[in-house]
Simulated assay, not measured.
Amino acid sequence: MFMSLTGLDTFLSAQYFKSENATQMYSDVVSATLLWTNNTGLPEPVNFTLPHKVGPSEDGLVTCVYWEENGDVKRWSTEGCMAIVSDGNSTICTCTHLSTFAVILQTEKDPLLEWVNLVCMCVGLTFLGLAVLTFLFCTWNPKVNNTARLHLSLTLFLAYLLFLVGLNRTNNLVCSAIAGLLHFLFLSSFVWMFLETLQLFLLVRGLTKVQAIQKEGLKKRYLLLIGYGTPLVVVGVSARVLPSGYGSAEKCWLNTEKGFIWSFLGPVCVILCVNCVLFCVILWTLQPTLSSMKSGISQAKDTRCVLIVFKILAQSIILGCAWILGFFQSSTLLQYLFVIVNSQQGTFIFIVHCLFNKEVVPPPNHVIDKILGYFRGGSDLATKLYVCF
Protein backbone atom coordinates (compact mmCIF):
# COMPACT_ATOMS: atom_id res chain seq x y z
CA MET A 1 0.00 0.00 0.00
CA PHE A 2 1.38 3.37 -1.01
CA MET A 3 -0.08 6.70 0.20
CA SER A 4 0.79 10.32 -0.51
CA LEU A 5 -0.15 12.34 2.59
CA THR A 6 -0.56 15.86 1.22
CA GLY A 7 -0.37 18.54 3.91
CA LEU A 8 1.09 16.28 6.61
CA ASP A 9 4.47 18.00 6.18
CA THR A 10 2.94 20.99 8.01
CA PHE A 11 2.86 18.91 11.20
CA LEU A 12 5.79 16.54 10.61
CA SER A 13 7.93 19.52 9.66
CA ALA A 14 11.67 19.81 9.08
CA GLN A 15 12.19 21.01 12.65
CA TYR A 16 12.10 17.33 13.66
CA PHE A 17 15.27 16.71 11.67
CA LYS A 18 18.44 17.40 13.64
CA SER A 19 20.91 19.41 11.61
CA GLU A 20 23.23 22.37 12.01
CA ASN A 21 21.93 23.68 8.70
CA ALA A 22 18.65 25.41 7.95
CA THR A 23 16.06 22.83 6.85
CA GLN A 24 12.79 22.84 4.96
CA MET A 25 10.37 20.22 3.70
CA TYR A 26 11.15 19.62 0.04
CA SER A 27 8.38 17.10 -0.74
CA ASP A 28 5.06 15.78 0.48
CA VAL A 29 5.07 12.99 3.04
CA VAL A 30 4.52 9.48 1.62
CA SER A 31 3.95 6.15 3.34
CA ALA A 32 4.72 2.65 2.01
CA THR A 33 3.51 -0.49 3.80
CA LEU A 34 3.36 -4.22 3.08
CA LEU A 35 -0.10 -5.55 3.98
CA TRP A 36 -0.60 -8.58 6.25
CA THR A 37 2.91 -8.39 7.70
CA ASN A 38 4.67 -6.54 10.49
CA ASN A 39 8.09 -6.92 8.89
CA THR A 40 9.28 -3.56 7.52
CA GLY A 41 12.77 -4.79 6.54
CA LEU A 42 13.52 -5.66 2.89
CA PRO A 43 16.02 -8.14 1.43
CA GLU A 44 16.92 -5.52 -1.19
CA PRO A 45 16.59 -1.72 -1.12
CA VAL A 46 13.52 -0.17 -2.71
CA ASN A 47 13.71 2.96 -4.87
CA PHE A 48 10.98 5.56 -5.11
CA THR A 49 10.67 9.02 -6.63
CA LEU A 50 9.36 12.04 -4.71
CA PRO A 51 8.39 15.25 -6.58
CA HIS A 52 9.64 18.52 -5.15
CA LYS A 53 7.22 21.04 -3.66
CA VAL A 54 9.35 24.10 -4.47
CA GLY A 55 11.74 25.10 -7.20
CA PRO A 56 15.30 23.76 -7.57
CA SER A 57 18.05 24.84 -5.20
CA GLU A 58 21.63 24.93 -6.41
CA ASP A 59 23.32 25.31 -3.01
CA GLY A 60 21.17 22.93 -0.94
CA LEU A 61 21.76 19.35 0.21
CA VAL A 62 18.83 17.06 -0.63
CA THR A 63 18.26 14.43 2.08
CA CYS A 64 15.94 11.41 2.03
CA VAL A 65 14.49 10.74 5.49
CA TYR A 66 11.96 8.49 7.21
CA TRP A 67 9.77 9.09 10.27
CA GLU A 68 11.15 7.31 13.35
CA GLU A 69 9.14 6.71 16.51
CA ASN A 70 11.00 5.05 19.36
CA GLY A 71 9.36 5.67 22.72
CA ASP A 72 9.36 9.40 23.32
CA VAL A 73 11.71 9.97 20.39
CA LYS A 74 9.88 11.24 17.32
CA ARG A 75 12.03 12.56 14.51
CA TRP A 76 13.07 12.42 10.87
CA SER A 77 16.03 10.05 10.45
CA THR A 78 18.33 9.12 7.55
CA GLU A 79 19.18 5.62 8.78
CA GLY A 80 18.86 3.16 5.90
CA CYS A 81 17.85 5.87 3.38
CA MET A 82 19.82 7.94 0.92
CA ALA A 83 19.30 10.05 -2.19
CA ILE A 84 20.45 8.53 -5.47
CA VAL A 85 19.56 11.19 -8.04
CA SER A 86 18.05 14.64 -7.62
CA ASP A 87 17.16 17.16 -10.30
CA GLY A 88 15.12 20.34 -10.28
CA ASN A 89 11.78 18.54 -10.13
CA SER A 90 12.17 15.31 -8.12
CA THR A 91 14.48 13.15 -6.04
CA ILE A 92 15.00 9.36 -6.27
CA CYS A 93 15.49 7.82 -2.82
CA THR A 94 16.60 4.31 -1.90
CA CYS A 95 15.73 2.74 1.46
CA THR A 96 16.28 -0.66 3.07
CA HIS A 97 12.91 -0.61 4.86
CA LEU A 98 9.37 0.62 4.43
CA SER A 99 8.06 3.49 6.49
CA THR A 100 6.88 7.09 6.12
CA PHE A 101 9.23 9.09 3.91
CA ALA A 102 9.95 12.65 2.79
CA VAL A 103 12.70 14.74 1.25
CA ILE A 104 14.29 17.52 3.31
CA LEU A 105 16.43 20.28 1.85
CA GLN A 106 19.38 21.43 3.95
CA THR A 107 20.91 24.83 3.29
CA GLU A 108 23.67 26.61 5.14
CA LYS A 109 22.45 29.27 7.56
CA ASP A 110 22.92 32.79 6.30
CA PRO A 111 25.50 34.42 8.62
CA LEU A 112 24.65 37.85 7.20
CA LEU A 113 20.97 37.37 8.04
CA GLU A 114 21.85 36.34 11.60
CA TRP A 115 24.13 39.37 11.95
CA VAL A 116 21.46 41.72 10.56
CA ASN A 117 18.92 40.14 12.93
CA LEU A 118 21.20 40.71 15.95
CA VAL A 119 21.98 44.34 15.05
CA CYS A 120 18.36 45.20 14.20
CA MET A 121 17.02 43.64 17.40
CA CYS A 122 19.55 45.56 19.50
CA VAL A 123 18.54 48.81 17.79
CA GLY A 124 14.85 47.99 18.23
CA LEU A 125 15.37 47.14 21.92
CA THR A 126 17.17 50.45 22.46
CA PHE A 127 14.29 52.47 21.04
CA LEU A 128 11.73 50.38 22.90
CA GLY A 129 13.60 51.16 26.10
CA LEU A 130 13.61 54.88 25.23
CA ALA A 131 9.87 54.72 24.48
CA VAL A 132 9.16 53.09 27.87
CA LEU A 133 11.22 55.78 29.65
CA THR A 134 9.41 58.52 27.75
CA PHE A 135 5.97 57.16 28.64
CA LEU A 136 7.00 56.76 32.31
CA PHE A 137 8.94 59.94 33.08
CA CYS A 138 7.77 62.62 30.64
CA THR A 139 4.72 64.78 31.27
CA TRP A 140 1.80 64.31 28.88
CA ASN A 141 -1.43 66.09 28.09
CA PRO A 142 -3.86 64.81 30.77
CA LYS A 143 -6.38 64.01 28.03
CA VAL A 144 -3.95 61.52 26.42
CA ASN A 145 -4.16 57.90 27.59
CA ASN A 146 -0.77 56.25 27.05
CA THR A 147 -1.54 53.03 28.89
CA ALA A 148 -1.79 50.92 25.73
CA ARG A 149 1.35 52.44 24.21
CA LEU A 150 3.35 51.97 27.40
CA HIS A 151 2.41 48.32 27.85
CA LEU A 152 2.76 47.61 24.12
CA SER A 153 6.34 48.90 24.32
CA LEU A 154 6.99 47.04 27.57
CA THR A 155 5.71 43.65 26.36
CA LEU A 156 7.58 43.98 23.06
CA PHE A 157 10.78 44.91 24.91
CA LEU A 158 10.54 41.89 27.22
CA ALA A 159 9.52 39.55 24.38
CA TYR A 160 12.36 40.55 22.06
CA LEU A 161 14.90 40.51 24.88
CA LEU A 162 13.84 37.01 25.95
CA PHE A 163 13.72 35.90 22.30
CA LEU A 164 17.26 37.16 21.79
CA VAL A 165 18.84 35.54 24.85
CA GLY A 166 16.64 32.48 25.42
CA LEU A 167 15.51 31.06 22.09
CA ASN A 168 18.35 28.52 21.85
CA ARG A 169 18.50 27.47 25.52
CA THR A 170 17.03 24.05 24.77
CA ASN A 171 17.13 22.60 28.26
CA ASN A 172 13.84 20.74 28.73
CA LEU A 173 12.29 22.53 31.71
CA VAL A 174 13.88 25.92 31.10
CA CYS A 175 13.06 25.76 27.39
CA SER A 176 9.39 25.03 28.10
CA ALA A 177 9.22 27.96 30.51
CA ILE A 178 10.85 30.29 27.98
CA ALA A 179 8.49 29.13 25.22
CA GLY A 180 5.45 29.65 27.45
CA LEU A 181 6.61 33.12 28.49
CA LEU A 182 7.33 34.07 24.88
CA HIS A 183 3.84 32.85 23.93
CA PHE A 184 2.32 35.06 26.63
CA LEU A 185 4.42 38.16 25.84
CA PHE A 186 3.92 38.09 22.08
CA LEU A 187 0.20 37.41 22.45
CA SER A 188 -0.01 40.23 24.99
CA SER A 189 1.73 42.59 22.58
CA PHE A 190 -0.82 41.71 19.91
CA VAL A 191 -3.67 42.37 22.33
CA TRP A 192 -2.13 45.74 23.23
CA MET A 193 -1.82 46.44 19.51
CA PHE A 194 -5.54 45.80 19.18
CA LEU A 195 -6.27 48.03 22.18
CA GLU A 196 -4.16 50.81 20.66
CA THR A 197 -6.16 50.55 17.44
CA LEU A 198 -9.35 50.60 19.47
CA GLN A 199 -8.12 53.71 21.29
CA LEU A 200 -7.49 55.39 17.94
CA PHE A 201 -10.95 54.40 16.73
CA LEU A 202 -12.58 55.84 19.86
CA LEU A 203 -10.58 59.05 19.44
CA VAL A 204 -11.71 59.51 15.83
CA ARG A 205 -15.31 58.69 16.74
CA GLY A 206 -15.17 61.26 19.54
CA LEU A 207 -14.42 64.02 17.02
CA THR A 208 -18.08 63.95 15.96
CA LYS A 209 -19.24 65.09 19.40
CA VAL A 210 -19.30 68.79 20.17
CA GLN A 211 -18.32 68.66 23.81
CA ALA A 212 -15.36 68.95 26.11
CA ILE A 213 -13.02 66.18 25.07
CA GLN A 214 -12.46 63.74 27.92
CA LYS A 215 -9.47 61.50 28.40
CA GLU A 216 -9.40 59.34 25.32
CA GLY A 217 -10.25 55.65 25.27
CA LEU A 218 -11.02 53.05 27.88
CA LYS A 219 -10.15 53.29 31.56
CA LYS A 220 -6.79 51.96 32.67
CA ARG A 221 -8.12 49.06 34.75
CA TYR A 222 -10.10 47.70 31.79
CA LEU A 223 -7.09 48.01 29.51
CA LEU A 224 -4.87 46.11 31.97
CA LEU A 225 -7.49 43.41 32.45
CA ILE A 226 -7.89 42.85 28.71
CA GLY A 227 -4.22 43.37 27.81
CA TYR A 228 -2.86 40.76 30.22
CA GLY A 229 -5.92 38.67 31.07
CA THR A 230 -6.70 37.58 27.51
CA PRO A 231 -3.24 36.16 26.66
CA LEU A 232 -3.02 34.57 30.11
CA VAL A 233 -6.24 32.65 29.44
CA VAL A 234 -5.03 31.54 25.99
CA VAL A 235 -1.65 30.36 27.30
CA GLY A 236 -3.28 28.63 30.29
CA VAL A 237 -5.75 26.73 28.11
CA SER A 238 -3.02 25.83 25.59
CA ALA A 239 -0.71 24.51 28.31
CA ARG A 240 -3.58 22.53 29.79
CA VAL A 241 -4.51 20.95 26.46
CA LEU A 242 -0.97 20.10 25.31
CA PRO A 243 1.82 20.72 27.87
CA SER A 244 4.42 19.18 25.54
CA GLY A 245 3.70 21.85 22.93
CA TYR A 246 6.14 24.26 24.54
CA GLY A 247 9.77 23.91 23.47
CA SER A 248 11.59 21.51 21.15
CA ALA A 249 15.09 20.17 20.58
CA GLU A 250 15.84 22.99 18.13
CA LYS A 251 14.43 26.13 19.77
CA CYS A 252 12.37 27.33 22.70
CA TRP A 253 9.17 28.15 20.88
CA LEU A 254 5.87 26.45 20.09
CA ASN A 255 6.24 23.18 18.20
CA THR A 256 3.95 22.06 15.43
CA GLU A 257 2.76 18.89 17.13
CA LYS A 258 -1.00 18.44 16.60
CA GLY A 259 -1.25 21.94 15.17
CA PHE A 260 -0.22 23.53 18.48
CA ILE A 261 1.29 26.52 16.67
CA TRP A 262 -2.27 27.68 15.96
CA SER A 263 -2.66 28.55 19.63
CA PHE A 264 -0.53 31.54 18.61
CA LEU A 265 -1.35 31.97 14.92
CA GLY A 266 -5.12 31.74 15.51
CA PRO A 267 -5.37 34.75 17.89
CA VAL A 268 -2.84 36.64 15.73
CA CYS A 269 -4.94 36.19 12.59
CA VAL A 270 -8.10 37.25 14.44
CA ILE A 271 -6.45 40.39 15.83
CA LEU A 272 -4.94 41.34 12.47
CA CYS A 273 -8.31 40.94 10.75
CA VAL A 274 -10.08 43.02 13.41
CA ASN A 275 -7.38 45.69 13.17
CA CYS A 276 -7.80 45.84 9.40
CA VAL A 277 -11.55 46.30 9.82
CA LEU A 278 -11.04 49.05 12.40
CA PHE A 279 -8.56 50.85 10.17
CA CYS A 280 -10.99 50.73 7.25
CA VAL A 281 -13.76 52.11 9.48
CA ILE A 282 -11.45 54.87 10.74
CA LEU A 283 -10.45 55.90 7.21
CA TRP A 284 -14.07 55.75 6.10
CA THR A 285 -15.38 57.93 8.93
CA LEU A 286 -12.47 60.36 9.27
CA GLN A 287 -13.22 62.77 6.42
CA PRO A 288 -16.99 63.10 7.04
CA THR A 289 -16.25 63.57 10.74
CA LEU A 290 -13.86 66.44 10.14
CA SER A 291 -16.08 68.13 7.57
CA SER A 292 -19.01 68.19 10.02
CA MET A 293 -17.11 69.92 12.82
CA LYS A 294 -18.07 73.41 14.00
CA SER A 295 -16.49 76.45 12.39
CA GLY A 296 -14.51 77.28 15.53
CA ILE A 297 -12.61 74.03 15.18
CA SER A 298 -12.58 73.89 11.40
CA GLN A 299 -9.64 76.31 11.21
CA ALA A 300 -7.37 73.55 12.50
CA LYS A 301 -9.19 70.89 10.51
CA ASP A 302 -6.58 70.41 7.79
CA THR A 303 -3.66 70.13 10.21
CA ARG A 304 -5.56 67.76 12.50
CA CYS A 305 -6.59 65.64 9.51
CA VAL A 306 -3.02 65.32 8.23
CA LEU A 307 -1.72 64.39 11.69
CA ILE A 308 -4.39 61.77 12.30
CA VAL A 309 -3.96 60.24 8.82
CA PHE A 310 -0.20 60.09 9.36
CA LYS A 311 -0.78 58.47 12.73
CA ILE A 312 -3.09 55.89 11.17
CA LEU A 313 -0.57 55.01 8.46
CA ALA A 314 2.23 54.73 11.03
CA GLN A 315 0.00 52.61 13.25
CA SER A 316 -0.74 50.25 10.35
CA ILE A 317 2.99 49.55 10.12
CA ILE A 318 3.31 49.13 13.88
CA LEU A 319 0.20 47.01 14.37
CA GLY A 320 0.07 44.71 11.40
CA CYS A 321 2.21 45.01 8.30
CA ALA A 322 5.42 43.89 10.02
CA TRP A 323 3.77 40.71 11.30
CA ILE A 324 2.02 39.89 8.04
CA LEU A 325 5.47 39.47 6.44
CA GLY A 326 6.02 36.57 8.85
CA PHE A 327 3.50 34.50 6.90
CA PHE A 328 5.51 34.88 3.68
CA GLN A 329 9.07 33.62 4.17
CA SER A 330 9.57 31.77 0.89
CA SER A 331 12.46 33.96 -0.34
CA THR A 332 15.60 35.49 1.13
CA LEU A 333 14.35 39.01 0.39
CA LEU A 334 11.17 38.45 2.43
CA GLN A 335 13.22 37.02 5.29
CA TYR A 336 15.39 40.16 5.39
CA LEU A 337 12.31 42.40 5.18
CA PHE A 338 10.65 40.54 8.04
CA VAL A 339 13.74 40.74 10.26
CA ILE A 340 14.29 44.46 9.59
CA VAL A 341 10.69 45.70 9.72
CA ASN A 342 9.56 43.51 12.61
CA SER A 343 12.55 44.33 14.80
CA GLN A 344 12.04 48.07 14.31
CA GLN A 345 8.57 48.32 15.82
CA GLY A 346 10.14 50.01 18.84
CA THR A 347 11.79 52.54 16.54
CA PHE A 348 8.44 53.36 14.92
CA ILE A 349 6.75 53.67 18.32
CA PHE A 350 9.44 56.01 19.64
CA ILE A 351 9.48 58.22 16.55
CA VAL A 352 5.69 58.49 16.10
CA HIS A 353 4.52 58.68 19.71
CA CYS A 354 7.52 60.28 21.43
CA LEU A 355 9.98 62.10 19.18
CA PHE A 356 7.45 63.78 16.84
CA ASN A 357 4.72 64.15 19.44
CA LYS A 358 4.28 67.80 20.47
CA GLU A 359 2.28 66.76 23.53
CA VAL A 360 5.40 65.36 25.21
CA VAL A 361 6.76 67.65 27.93
CA PRO A 362 10.26 67.04 29.40
CA PRO A 363 10.22 65.65 32.95
CA PRO A 364 10.46 68.14 35.82
CA ASN A 365 13.82 68.95 37.41
CA HIS A 366 13.35 66.74 40.47
CA VAL A 367 12.70 63.72 38.22
CA ILE A 368 15.81 64.55 36.18
CA ASP A 369 17.87 64.80 39.37
CA LYS A 370 16.50 61.46 40.53
CA ILE A 371 17.40 59.80 37.22
CA LEU A 372 20.90 61.26 37.22
CA GLY A 373 21.28 60.25 40.86
CA TYR A 374 21.30 56.60 39.83
CA PHE A 375 24.60 57.23 38.07
CA ARG A 376 27.34 57.42 40.67
CA GLY A 377 29.54 60.47 40.69
CA GLY A 378 27.38 62.56 38.35
CA SER A 379 29.38 61.27 35.40
CA ASP A 380 29.51 62.83 31.96
CA LEU A 381 28.01 59.60 30.62
CA ALA A 382 24.80 60.29 32.53
CA THR A 383 24.60 63.81 31.14
CA LYS A 384 25.17 62.57 27.60
CA LEU A 385 22.54 59.89 27.99
CA TYR A 386 20.00 62.45 29.18
CA VAL A 387 20.88 64.88 26.36
CA CYS A 388 20.42 62.12 23.76
CA PHE A 389 17.16 61.08 25.41
Rank of each mutant, 00 (worst) to 15 (best):
I324Y: 05
A14D: 09
C321L: 15
V268K: 03
G80P: 06
T155L: 03
V46C: 08
V210N: 15
Q345W: 01
P111K: 03
N145F: 12
L202S: 01
V54A: 12
V233W: 05
T147L: 07
L202R: 13
G378L: 02
T107Y: 00
N365M: 08
F2E: 09
L254T: 02
F157R: 01
S57P: 00
K370F: 13
S379G: 12
H353P: 00
C276Y: 04
G80T: 14
I92K: 15
T170P: 09
V54F: 13
A300G: 13
P363Y: 15
L202C: 05
L112N: 11
C276M: 13
F184T: 05
F184K: 13
C95I: 04
Q24Y: 08
C81L: 11
L173V: 10
V281M: 11
S331Q: 03
V341D: 02
T134Q: 06
D110Y: 02
K220Y: 01
F17L: 07
S316H: 05
K258T: 02
F356T: 15
Y374D: 09
H353N: 08
P142T: 06
K311E: 07
F184S: 10
F17Q: 00
F328R: 06
L162V: 14
R205C: 07
N168I: 00
M3N: 05
L173N: 07
F184A: 12
L42S: 08
L290W: 14
S176D: 10
G259I: 04
T78C: 09
G236H: 13
T197I: 01
N47S: 14
L61N: 15
I84Q: 10
A212Y: 15
D110I: 02
L182F: 09
K53A: 12
S343H: 04
R169Q: 01
T289C: 10
C273A: 15
K301L: 12
